[in-house]
Computed example of a mutant assay.
Amino acid sequence: MDRRTVLRATAAGGAAAFAGSLWSGAALAAPAQPGVGPYGPLGTADARGLQLPAGFTSRIVARSRQVVAGTSYTWHDAPDGGACFAAGTGWIYVSNSEITTTGGASAIRFNADGTIASAYRILSNTNRNCAGGATPWGTWLSCEEVSRGYVYETYPQGGLAAVRRPALGRFNHEAAAADPVRQVIYLTEDETSGCFYRFRPTVWGDLSAGTLEVLVAGTATSGPVSWTRVPDPDGSPTYTRQQVSGAKKFNGGEGCWYADGTCWFTTKGDNRVWAYDAVNQRIDLAYDDSLVIGGTAPLTGVDNITGSRSGDLYVAEDGGNMEIVLITPDAVVAPFVRLTGQSSSEITGPAFSPDGSRLYFSSQRGTSGSSSGGITYEVRGPFR
């Protein structure tokens, strides 16, 4: 399959173009607070150990080191970041493998009725592929979470070899999100003094060349920001995060999601969800567990993030009480799903099917607490 065919196959509904934000400036006037979610309380655990609101059901679609049902493909260890892509009348879910030196990414192709059609490898023998992001042209950016790591552009449809994209910078990559309006890729860095970057391709849709920039701002948690070019994206001998004076530092960059003029990203070191307003070039706090008023913070261990068509943000926990917690456009924080019996794991890779009816995610270490025990789930129900 050539690149032109890939573009035609995905143009009708790639994950990067999914979801429109309903958030307003008023909603960002103060960080989100606990409240009653749109789907009500969580029920008792189902047969797979998932607590879900009424009307939602779960199934397991893959387990590490086990053959994916209906295929001959063995699912990878330590499933991490993921995304969904339209594929004919069905869709594809891709998932990274956060394993040292033998990581990479795999894909599961689903038929229109949700049955599994095939599963296969799209990236092999790379290093701690943690999160990443989907592009509007239907590729998956798989990011290496190691010092001076690379971003690899992969092809969920199969048939094309993955391509290393050094122009996006060499650093401790975490996640990526495409902004088709400004034609940039936003990038997070998993360091205690990491930065927030954007990459401006010379030609939109071609990541072989372009300019890497870093966000520059003061020490405040909200306000106007600017961007400055990173002199040496290779990060050697000086790390990219140390090259620009005034670059704003973030405590452990994690998930990243773009929708309707805003790039949302998370930082695990301080349990925050940030909103970069690309239209007005400013940042604000959408959530901060230390600013929850009264009671226990409903979201801790802040990690991967995705969005739904309603504008709800879905934030996965690394630790915490093993929940995916949603933040609504009117700034209400509430749990959506809780995994029981998996306290030594983390939730990774949340992503919606192109029609918004199914949510995919993984428990990286499952009930065993080992990278060989990963479990990938699907949740169906009346998503708004």
Score class of each variant (00 low, 15 high):
residue 263 C to T: 14
residue 173 H to D: 08
residue 279 V to N: 11
residue 192 T to F: 14
residue 242 Q to F: 13
residue 170 R to T: 08
residue 230 V to R: 03
residue 187 L to S: 09
residue 281 Q to K: 05
residue 234 D to S: 15
residue 201 P to L: 07
residue 171 F to I: 12
residue 248 K to M: 03
residue 273 V to F: 01
residue 180 P to S: 09
residue 243 Q to S: 04
residue 222 S to E: 10
residue 231 P to G: 03
residue 267 T to F: 08
residue 182 R to N: 15
residue 187 L to Y: 04
residue 221 T to A: 13
residue 229 R to M: 12
residue 203 V to E: 13
residue 180 P to I: 01
residue 271 N to H: 08
residue 185 I to D: 04
residue 181 V to K: 12
residue 220 A to P: 03
residue 207 L to I: 08
residue 257 W to V: 10
residue 231 P to C: 07
residue 208 S to T: 15
residue 198 R to E: 02
residue 268 K to Q: 15
residue 260 D to K: 12
residue 175 A to I: 03
residue 214 V to N: 05
residue 210 G to T: 07
residue 274 W to S: 02
residue 230 V to H: 02
residue 217 A to D: 05
residue 174 E to V: 01
residue 185 I to Q: 07
residue 254 E to S: 01
residue 266 T to P: 08
residue 264 W to E: 00
residue 189 E to W: 00
residue 178 A to I: 11
residue 260 D to Q: 14
residue 243 Q to C: 05
residue 257 W to S: 11
residue 260 D to Y: 11
residue 176 A to H: 00
residue 180 P to V: 01
residue 203 V to N: 13
residue 285 L to E: 05
residue 245 S to E: 11
residue 255 G to I: 03
residue 199 F to W: 03
residue 231 P to E: 02
residue 279 V to M: 11
residue 242 Q to D: 15
residue 250 F to Y: 11
residue 242 Q to H: 14
residue 238 T to H: 08
residue 204 W to S: 06
residue 272 R to V: 05
residue 203 V to Q: 13
residue 169 G to F: 01
residue 277 D to W: 00
residue 248 K to T: 02
residue 216 V to P: 09
residue 247 A to Y: 02
residue 272 R to D: 00
residue 218 G to S: 08
residue 206 D to Y: 12
residue 179 D to H: 05
